[in-house]
Design a protein around this nucleic acid. Sequence first.
RNA 1: UACGAUGGACGGACGGUCGCGUCCCGUUGAGAGCGGGAUGAGGAAAGUCCGAACUCCACAGGGCAGGGCGCUUCGGAAAUCGAAGGCGUUUCGGCUCCGAUUCGUCGGAGCCGGGGCGACGGAAAGUGCCACAGAAAAGAUACCGCCCGCCUAAGGCGGGUAAGGGUGAAAAGGCGAGGUAAGAGCUCACCGGUCCGGCGGUGACGCCGGACGCAGGGUAAACCCCGCCCGGAGCAAGGCCAAAUAGACGAGGAGCGCACAACCGGCUUGCCGGAUGCGCGGGGAAUGGCCCGUUCCCCUUGACUCGCGGGUAGGCCGCACGAUUUCGGCGGUGACGCCGGAACCAGAUAAAUGACCGUCCUCCCGUCACGGCGGGAGACAGAAUUCGGCUUACAGUUCAUCGUAUGAG
RNA 2: GUGGGUAUAGCUCAGCCGGUUAGAGCGUCAGGUUGUGGCCCUGAAGGCCGAGGGUUCGAGUCCCUCUACUCACC
Length: 137
Amino acid sequence: MDEVIRNPAHGRPGTRVPRETVIPPPRIRLTKADRIRKSDTFREILSDGRRWHETHMTMVYRAFSRRQVGFAVSKHTGNAVVRNRMKRRMRELFRQRQHEIGPFQIVFLARKGLDRTDFQKLRREFDRFLRGSGVMT
RNA sequence: UACGAUGGACGGACGGUCGCGUCCCGUUGAGAGCGGGAUGAGGAAAGUCCGAACUCCACAGGGCAGGGCGCUUCGGAAAUCGAAGGCGUUUCGGCUCCGAUUCGUCGGAGCCGGGGCGACGGAAAGUGCCACAGAAAAGAUACCGCCCGCCUAAGGCGGGUAAGGGUGAAAAGGCGAGGUAAGAGCUCACCGGUCCGGCGGUGACGCCGGACGCAGGGUAAACCCCGCCCGGAGCAAGGCCAAAUAGACGAGGAGCGCACAACCGGCUUGCCGGAUGCGCGGGGAAUGGCCCGUUCCCCUUGACUCGCGGGUAGGCCGCACGAUUUCGGCGGUGACGCCGGAACCAGAUAAAUGACCGUCCUCCCGUCACGGCGGGAGACAGAAUUCGGCUUACAGUUCAUCGUAUGAG
RNA sequence: GUGGGUAUAGCUCAGCCGGUUAGAGCGUCAGGUUGUGGCCCUGAAGGCCGAGGGUUCGAGUCCCUCUACUCACC
């Protein structure tokens, strides 16, 4: 199962499997329906959700009927380009491993330096959250 | 060739894997999902400093107040916008003249050419202000001086003068010569200025000639005067649909009071409950001479039910074919305009345009065999109703003009 | 997104219509008073007036451009 969920793009060059033998992996898409898009919902989660702190981001989460995610960046962290990049990187982290996560609502809060940090480091931080917080299935 | 200034252009390229928004097509009962295709940030998208389109509100007309703008002509829908020109100023180069000279040059003035800068109407319409210093800061005055006269000396007094010194940001045309007791446009040449006339130019303005010894400081990004312009708010404009909760309005309406002969039920046997009958506050109008009354209308009290207007969350429209982009031709010094052809070119809303990898390109650092190798970096910055400008940020590449240095002819 | 406001000493604020040295309170430091500390008294230090240009002889003040903070509007 683990092998299937890993994105083939993450493999080192040369280790790619020939196309014909690949079983199509489960889709790792992330559409609008999977996003939290209401101010009220954000407020509720931020007020009564549990928190998990990492160096470059904070995760706020609570149990829910299905899997939903939202991303928030404070105005103080930088200009529009920086804030957008932070959201996109957090979204990418979540997108790639979303199928390992159970029915929870999770809000990602960006912290300083998120836009400049190496993506592999962010992956390790996110992995620590997944293993430590109990949101995995 | 290098460096600097100003202005213009570009602002990483190609490919792979996994994804995102919008639109179209197919599938489908279906606008869900799935499959396919197309398309998807900028020169500043930014700041919000100007100007518009568009929308709503207000609006006879005119004036005042308030605000904005300000050389000329042209362009433009308009603009604290652009182009060309004028004038001023500054800088560089060249030439001419004057003065000084240690004969190397230095200083000043003018002309020509190139570049930069200029919120550039009016200071003889009026008012205000010009600190300190200085004699004096505006239609004035004499501190040190200079000269003349008088008083016995030191010096003082009276008068003349504004060339020299001194103060200041600024001192009443500049400079040279003549002149004089010393001086002064007192006189003269040149330069500057004011006025008048002529010529050239659409015009700002320029040129020429004449007159006037000069008729008078700065500040209007001080009040102000003159000319021109300006209604207010902004897509969170504005329109449509419309949960939940509270409340408004309309309709229905249980209800309350009194009586209780007969009827039903209970029992303490004359009371209670049901049923039944009658009634239920205030105001106005009509009828009428007036009152009672009657009729009609309005207001008030009322669980609950239904209907309904406004409207919040939320959704939809506005919302992308336009002062559009691009190619060619023509006109114009140019901004730009005209004609013809072609194109459709983002539409999100906790807000898409990304993540990772490879090859190459550019730059930096290290190494050295001078061409590779290793490492690092690729700026400023993200549409939010839409345009036209301005301003600010910006790694690197490149073009043009000018200047400086060096080299070659 | 739109429309306003503010920035002056470590902190909270004055500074008029440009003018010579930018003030006040609290705080800080030093001295005095006290057996010691506080209160109190005396004195001192501390500011390129948010940044950069411009107008002017002269700018905290006037004009322009930026920066930061802040308020209002669905």
